[in-house]
Design a protein around this nucleic acid. Structure first.
Lengths: 202, 202
DNA sequence: GCCTGCGGCGACACTCAGTGTCAACCAAGA
DNA sequence: TCTTGGTTGACACTGAGTGTCGCCGCAGGC
């Protein structure tokens, strides 16, 4: 099975690579699936066997970040406050983005500059909010359906992250994304205890 | 011109009414534009002269709420803090929704239960966030591009509103929506002292 | 009265995303 | 070798959305 799976992964990479190159180069709406499959050397039908839609090619690479955040939150120790745990969870995403601005910035710009992709991005964010809320509720022993707290904490953190990333993008990746997120988190937790001296140590 | 415009409005209403009825009745994806225009007695082409897309028929009636919120915020007196002004601005939307739950609840459920509509809704919310942020920045004499505060305040308020409405919807419209929004706003403003340094007297 | 311009409409053809179906192919394993 | 499961390409189809064109009705001017 390993040989077949490797072949499959190869086709998928080929398709994703060709798609990203064309979409970033000439714009989302201006690029048809026919152009993508011609560049990748497969049939139109095969494209839709690997990606549910044209949007998915772009969005999948972004939604991996959401999974990383969710995974990190699940591993945060119980003694951390919801805000501390959320801040730490987002740190892994920030690191990935700030690591290669030359990769992430064009992708962000493509997504934010294309209505169809932006909508999908917002939808992903909405799902992530629910997932983070569920995890927070589990941590605190609350019911996410009855208590507004978990959903609010998740939503506020997501808002802080979003605003920080947008600001960072407007500055062309100059400045420290991590510091921007810190600032945004601090502004959304005015009095509260988000800053605890040695809390972020492993 | 008045006679022509009235005729136009009539067709538009006819179309919107038929669409809402069919979409709510048999689901969004299950309803084609052909069915809508057949019910309204016009041609397919005419539908797209009145609505940019099938989604727009539903979303337009929702996005009016956003315009109302934005309009209300613009009229709030300067002495109110950003949070007070935002809370008051959302009040007008809450009133409209709580007034006729029998109308608003099915619409909310249709939008939230249909991926394509939910995405459009989130996009509208995103635009509204920017507009509210711009208005807040104007009030405070800040630059919405440099300062994270306005965008954060708008985003947090929108999150509070969204969480409250979702909770209200889950409860089938039982309970007091206004009180839920109050609770959500209070939870996002722990100390209630969230004004930016430059904010002043009340 | 008649003519003329203009706006809305229906009909038609077209593009493009996405889906179902089927036959061909290819790698195993019996 | 025969068979079986999985992948692929070809083809046809639906449905949203757009461009174009000719038609009709309703103004206004003569």
């Amino acid at each position: 099975m390993t040989i077949a799976e490797r072949k499959r992964q190869l086709v998928r990479d080929q398709l994703g690579e060709a798609a990203l190159r064309l979409l970033a180069g000439q714009g989302y709406e201006q690029t048809t699936v026919d152009q993508i499959v011609a560049a990748a050397g497969v049939s139109r039908r095969t494209f839709f066997r690997y990606f549910k839609s044209k949007e998915d090619v772009v969005v999948e690479s972004v939604s991996d970040l959401g999974a990383a955040i969710r995974g990190e939150l699940a591993t945060r120790p119980d003694h951390e406050s919801p805000q501390e745990a959320l801040r730490a969870a987002f740190a892994v995403a920030i690191e990935q983005m700030a690591e290669e601005p030359a990769k992430s910035l064009p992708l962000i710009r493509l997504v934010f500059g294309t209505p169809a992709l932006h909508r999908r991005f917002l939808e992903n964010q909405s799902v992530l909010q629910e997932e983070l809320a569920a995890e927070l509720a589990r941590r605190e022993g609350l019911d996410a359906r009855d208590d507004l707290g978990p959903a609010l904490a998740a939503g506020v953190a997501l808002t802080a992250f979003q605003v920080a990333v947008e600001s960072w993008t407007r500055r062309d990746g100059d400045g420290d994304l991590n510091a921007l997120v810190d600032e945004a988190f601090a502004l959304t937790n005015p009095g509260a205890a988000t800053q605890r001296p040695s809390a972020t140590a492993d």
